[in-house]
């Protein structure tokens, strides 16, 4: 009992460490890509590491007090890392026994909730507007995520993510899962806070939204959480919706998954760069349409496609 538990927790930590280390790299690659499309040379790929490094050492300015306010950044990053421990990333998730698909959906929303709380707590009107927008984005995006994953659960007859992945691997592509995957991808764009959906941060309108009052190490943690989240969710997308082909050789499969994740992130970056920011009502309308279209996935799943 304890040994199994210890092993799970150690794996969980390992997972967290990997996600933490790799996510700035992915962000660096995405930035480089942006620069290329901008006709710029752009910063080096390692720039996000330097950003974090520098932020961690900077003065921590706080506009509000209290234990809760002080602990929110750590919990935000922690919740993202927890998400990383709950979903399969190339291998079985270390904490798979602790949560199924529904739990994952809630945990995925958790970091957003904590960011909102920080926004409301920091007493800035920009932060409040940002938090309010963040909530609306979450409200429009989370159903899509849910629909996509429920399609998987419906097909695999289990709510366990590992079970869904296994089913996918064994049964190959299907129309419903493809639609679900596309919907998930569109939602990912918003969850990663990328254009045209970086409405909650919207530097030019509300100066960073919920994070306007965050600085130094706190900002570093929020940024890091964001980057880690986009990486983790990209993994979720790839693993649940596009896990094939599985060669059976573990290292090769892992490599392939990583490449696919990178492709997803590159796509995200390209969409980010060729779009202006939408207004919140427009984004909600857009996701409403996406949500209704993704119900088609459910319909296909019900008729067995």
């Amino acid at each position: 009992m304890t040994a199994w538990l210890m092993r799970s927790f150690l794996l969980c930590l390992l997972n967290a460490a990997l996600a933490l280390v790799l996510s700035p790299l992915c962000e660096g690659i995405m930035r480089k890509l942006r620069a290329a499309i901008h006709s710029r040379i752009g910063p080096p790929i390692t720039q996000p590491y330097w950003d974090l490094f520098k932020l961690l050492g900077k003065e921590d300015l706080r506009s509000a007090g209290g234990v809760v306010y002080a602990s929110l950044p750590a919990f935000t990053l922690g919740s993202v890392l927890l998400l990383a421990a709950l979903i399969p990333m190339g291998t079985a998730a270390p904490l798979a026994f602790a949560g199924d698909m529904i739990v994952v959906l809630y945990v995925a929303a958790m970091s957003g909730i904590l960011v909102m709380l920080v926004g409301f707590a920091s007493a800035s009107p920009y932060a409040s507007i940002g938090s309010s927008r963040e909530m609306m984005m979450l409200l429009s995006v989370e159903p899509i995520l849910a629909i996509a994953l429920v399609v998987g659960a419906f097909k695999a007859r289990t709510l366990a993510l590992g079970g869904i992945v296994n089913w996918q691997v064994q049964n190959g592509p299907s129309i419903s899962m493809a639609i679900g995957g596309v919907a998930f991808f569109l939602a990912l764009q918003a969850l990663a806070g990328k254009l045209p959906f970086d409405i909650a941060e919207a530097d030019q309108e509300i100066m960073g939204g919920p994070l306007v009052e965050q600085s130094g190490p706190r900002l570093a943690l929020f940024r890091w959480a964001m980057w880690t989240k986009q990486l983790v969710l990209a993994f979720l997308l790839v693993e649940v919706f596009f896990p094939w082909p599985r060669l059976g050789i573990h290292q090769l499969d892992l490599l392939m998954t990583s490449v696919k994740v990178l492709v997803v992130l590159v796509l995200v970056a390209v969409i980010d760069v060729v779009n202006p920011r939408l207004r919140i009502d427009q984004a909600m309308g857009y996701f409403l349409r996406v949500a209704f279209s993704s119900l088609a996935a459910l319909a296909f799943a019900v008729i067995g496609k």
Partner: peptide, 11 residues
């Protein structure tokens, strides 16, 4: 709790 502590250590 473990991960949040880890994050706090980073912070």
């Amino acid at each position: 709790a473990i991960l949040a502590l880890l994050s706090y250590a980073i912070q």
